[in-house]
Design a protein around this nucleic acid. Structure first.
Lengths: 129, 129
DNA sequence: CAGAATCCCATTCGATACTG
DNA sequence: CAGTATCGAATGGGATTCTG
């Protein structure tokens, strides 16, 4: 791998010259259907399993379990289990998770700013299909 | 739950309250295997089909075609065809595409800064598996 | 060179049912 | 409540072949 110079390229600040540095790991999570929504919801504060489920319409129990588990594995979310009856589990962002949520927020801002332009471009394209 | 206070939260500026605004459209593209790499390569300048293919090791002709086409459809990339023999096609970012590439760059920076921490978290998790 | 078309496998995800 | 387990459909993407 070329570990030489990322400083030359003017357009791209310091991302990844030839390979994908670590961005694929991140995008593989962000890219799936639910991770971002869970992240955004947890950015508002600590949530229980059931609260997340209700806050994210359409998510299945299975996918919520899978998604939160992956986030925990990556050190982005912390899980606290209270062995009460009925059981209770709290999910909250770690510091790193909150940091990522900030990035997601920026991306969400971008998306909102450009969603109309994207939709218009698609219309043009599809009309000429 | 309190649906009032997004202004209190310091981490999340103004993303999307309950739904996913337009961010899913963006992440659906960014999330797939090759879009980001094409974006990063085009951020360096105009590229021909074959140049992109060589610059992105492992991509198949099919996926390069599919990926560039999707980017064109979304108005992020412009295609210029020269009806010569042999044919020649130039790809370049639109203004909006360059803007998105900037976001991707920021995300790549974040990924690089945290990839070690993420890897460490995964190791910890997997060790207790 | 720059694709389009086809085949096929792997992964993802939704729905459902069951458990401590 | 907070999960786990299993199954089937849809999707993504690789390899290959063909064309202007």
């Amino acid at each position: 791998m070329s570990a030489t110079n990322t400083a030359i390229s003017p357009q791209v600040s310091g991302p990844c010259g030839d390979d994908d540095c670590g961005i694929r790991d991140v995008l593989d999570r962000l890219g799936d259907r639910w991770t971002v929504l869970v992240l955004v919801e947890l950015a508002k504060g600590t949530r229980r399993f059931r609260e997340l489920e209700r806050a994210i319409p359409g998510i299945s129990q299975r996918m919520l379990t899978v998604t939160t588990k992956r986030l925990c594995r990556d050190g982005l979310v912390e899980r606290t289990v209270y062995p009460t009856i009925p059981p209770r589990t709290d999910y909250r962002l770690t510091e790193m998770g909150a940091s990522l949520a900030g990035m997601v927020s920026a991306l969400a801002d971008w998306s909102r700013d450009h969603k109309d332009a994207i939709a218009a471009a698609r219309d043009d394209w599809d009309r000429l299909a």
